[in-house]
Design a binder for these strands. Structure first.
Length: 140
DNA sequence: GCCAACGTTGGC
DNA sequence: GCCAACGTTGGC
């Protein structure tokens, strides 16, 4: 099963608000990037990903799960962009900071390091397991 | 607040 | 269809 990483500025949409949204989850709209959009189109319900705080915090803070597949964003007039719906699964007891990720040679190839501007990224199984363990949870 | 890197746009 | 110019993102 594939894994993902979602970036969000806590000022705009924080992990706490994702948790408050509960089981119903929230529509991850606003993405206007083809690559990120394509990644979301490829997602299956039940696939999990990391929730990353950019700018402020700069750390992986929690785990989210896809609860609804990709659907068109009604606010996008071009009809090209859409999003999946995500719910919070669990916080990381110990958030994994960007500094830590960069310091670990096993994570040097992460998209987060290589292409920091992409807002929705794939994560390999190895990267997933390693960050889960650094964060203090057993990989679900 | 600055600046580098990247994606997107628009002119040709 | 190419490429320069521009805007945005995000780390520092």
């Amino acid at each position: 099963m594939a894994h993902w990483l979602y970036k969000s500025e806590p000022e705009v949409w924080s992990w706490d608000r994702q948790v408050e949204a509960g089981e119903a989850g929230t529509y991850w709209d606003g993405v206007r990037n083809y690559l990120a959009n394509n990644h979301m189109k490829a997602m299956q319900v039940g696939e999990r990903g990391f929730f990353y705080h950019s700018n402020e915090g700069k750390a992986v803070v929690g785990i989210v799960e896809v609860v609804k597949p990709w659907a068109h964003d009604p606010k996008d007039e071009t009809g090209k962009f859409g999003a999946v719906t995500l719910k919070a699964v669990a916080p990381l007891p110990k958030p994994v900071g960007l500094v830590e990720i960069k310091a670990d040679p096993r994570l040097a190839e992460m998209v987060l390091v290589k292409n920091s501007r992409l807002s929705v990224q794939p994560v390999t199984d190895d990267e997933w397991a390693l960050i889960c363990s650094l964060g203090g949870v057993t990989a679900p």
